[in-house]
């Protein structure tokens, strides 16, 4: 007979969180549809846009050189990757786990909820980073996009990425409560992310949208993530085209950070392992 355990060892929340990350990443890459629709999707879109609009004119840098379609669309696709890897992936994934019994099984074990969250957010960090790296490689190697050389720009890239991907993941966990079943998850979540991408300057040039739509998009974090990415990858000549004529990195921190806090609060209030008494 096992002896009665009154206390579990300290530090297990973090240890189990790391073990969850390894499990989640492995399972993610074995799931064919998630690899295509969230991992490779931005790469596919970048390839299509860069090829289709290769003769288009997107403006020039300070030296008067034309900016290629691939260079122009890269920041948007990076931002879209943050949204897909975090929000879309987790909202659908967790809704499915809730309805197929994964969460019910975990609820019956001594796994801390926080370890489960660490596993999900860690999975998004790892897959999101791999996705961004792939996008940069494809842009540079296949389409000859010149990547930034200044350390300061890369520093901006890193914090925009980390803030964006974390916010997106946390919002995904919060949104996973919305679909009533795993089957409906994709059809509930996909329209949300699709509309956000269209109004936030991922597929359509943001500056060409009417002012009122720009204002609506400014409420949501994707517009700011895309703006942060543009500040890294587009020449300074593009800054004046932005809303307010500036990259407004303070705004990126403020709005995205606000959504991060809102997401964390929503997770804390709404997350349940199972729908009790359903």
């Amino acid at each position: 007979m096992t002896t009665t355990i009154t206390r579990l060892p300290a530090g297990r929340t973090a240890r189990l969180g790391l073990s969850r990350i390894a499990n989640e990443v492995r399972a993610y890459f074995r799931q064919g549809d998630s690899v295509f629709f969230t991992f490779l999707f931005p790469v596919v879109m970048l390839t299509i846009f860069s090829t289709a609009f290769s003769n288009g004119s997107f403006g020039t840098d300070s030296a008067g050189n034309d900016v290629s379609a691939a260079a122009y669309y890269l920041p948007g696709m990076l931002a879209a990757g943050l949204l897909l890897s975090g929000l879309q992936n987790l909202a659908i994934d967790i809704a499915i786990e809730r309805s197929d019994g994964t969460l019910k099984r975990l609820a019956g074990t001594p796994l801390p909820v926080v370890s489960y969250f660490i596993g999900k957010i860690g999975q998004v960090l790892v897959t999101g980073a791999a996705q961004a790296a792939l996008l940069l490689i494809v842009a540079a190697v296949l389409f000859g996009v010149e990547l930034p050389t200044e350390a300061g720009q890369w520093a901006t890239f890193v914090w925009v990425f980390l803030l964006g991907v974390t916010t997106s993941a946390v919002l995904g966990i919060a949104l996973s409560r919305v679909p009533r079943s795993g089957k409906s998850a994709t059809s509930v979540i996909l329209p949300i992310t699709l509309v956000l991408q269209f109004i936030s300057g991922v597929y359509l040039p943001f500056t060409q949208l009417p002012d009122w739509l720009q204002n609506v998009a400014s409420v949501f974090p994707l517009k700011w993530m895309a703006q942060g990415m543009r500040s890294v990858f587009l020449p300074d000549t593009f800054e004046s085209l932005e809303q307010g004529g500036s990259w407004d990195l303070a705004g990126v921190v403020l709005v995205t950070g606000l959504w991060l806090v809102v997401g964390l609060i929503l997770c804390r209030i709404t997350f349940r392992w199972i729908r009790k008494d359903s």
Binding site: T2, T4, I5, L8, P9, R15, L16, S19, N23, R26, A27, R30, Q31, I96, E97, D100, G101, T102, K104, R105, G108, T109, P110, L111
Partner: peptide, 30 residues
């Protein structure tokens, strides 16, 4: 941690091997 639960049914997507799943769950218990 002192309970073992075998539910009536499960339909997890199952993208892990039997050993991976068991090893992972073993790690959750003291």
């Amino acid at each position: 941690a002192r309970l073992g639960i075998v539910l009536q049914s499960s339909g997890e997507s199952g993208n892990v091997t039997v050993r991976e799943q068991l090893t992972h769950f073993a790690g959750i218990y003291p």
